[in-house]
Amino acid sequence: MRRLAGLAIAVAILGLAGFFLLTRPASLPPETLARLQAHPADPVAGQSVFWAAGCSSCHARPGLDAMSPMSERLRLTGGDEFATPFGTFRAPNISMDPEQGIGGWTLAQFARAVMLGVGPDGAHYYPAFPFTTYSRATPEDIADLWAFWQSLPADPTPSLAHEVGFPFSIRRGLGLWKLLNFNQDYVVPASDAPVLMRGRYLVEALGHCTECHTPRGILGGLALSNWLAGAPNPVGQGRIPALPPQGWSAEDIAAYLQSGFTPSFDVVGGSMADVVTNLSQIAAEDRAAIASYLVALRSSPNR
């Protein structure tokens, strides 16, 4: 009996040790750190990365619309709520405020947060933050982005806690989620067409279209075999359509991302309206590259 109890304790200790080993927060590889530091960071290029990556879609104050001044989208107060099957996530303040925001971070801390989903204190972030997408970004783009970030305003709004039920409330456990779902490989194979490659980078590494347009499994991981094939709305009613929309040409998609007008001149609404506002700020060639990638993806999706 005592031997059995001893065995049970030993198994429990081994299990805990295994859990802690498997869920260790990752660090950036030395090669990434070297590229971050070696790159002469350009805040102007970083501004394009900012709009392509859509940071303000979630981190600007709630309630902005297409009529709001763009400067409001540069004030990253946080506070928007995302009610998911796993709980309610609240976007944190990521403004330059050193206390409430991330103004006190180093470039390496910023890159680790964005590319690996790990905070400066070593805590895992919830994948409501699309670090699985951003992990494909180049260190040079991240360095440029951080250089642009330095010009953004500080805001003293305190971040609000997420409301997540057990067992998802144990952040350490997210290490297991990452083991299952964190895959830095591109989904669409490489091609030798530079426009398609640029589109792939914008969609798969920065734009995080997949976060809403691809269905998720029961643990919230993306079902990569149904890449951009349409999905239930992860944060509300209704359905997010498959990409590309039925019958849309590359020109239609690029025009929509610039103006919000569909081919029949309906106008974008919902959370996609913020995406269009962001993408209206990037270069026309980049919107065209996204469109090329999407029309090459599949010809006639089912919705």
């Binding site: 297409a66 919000g260 974008v268 996609m272 309206a273």
Partner: peptide, 20 residues
């Protein structure tokens, strides 16, 4: 003038129309 028009349509759709 077209951007202001699209913006006015979009702002109302964002707040008052359920996405499909």
């Amino acid at each position: 003038a077209i951007r202001g028009l699209g913006g006015a349509c979009g702002a109302c759709h964002q707040a008052f129309r359920q996405p499909e």
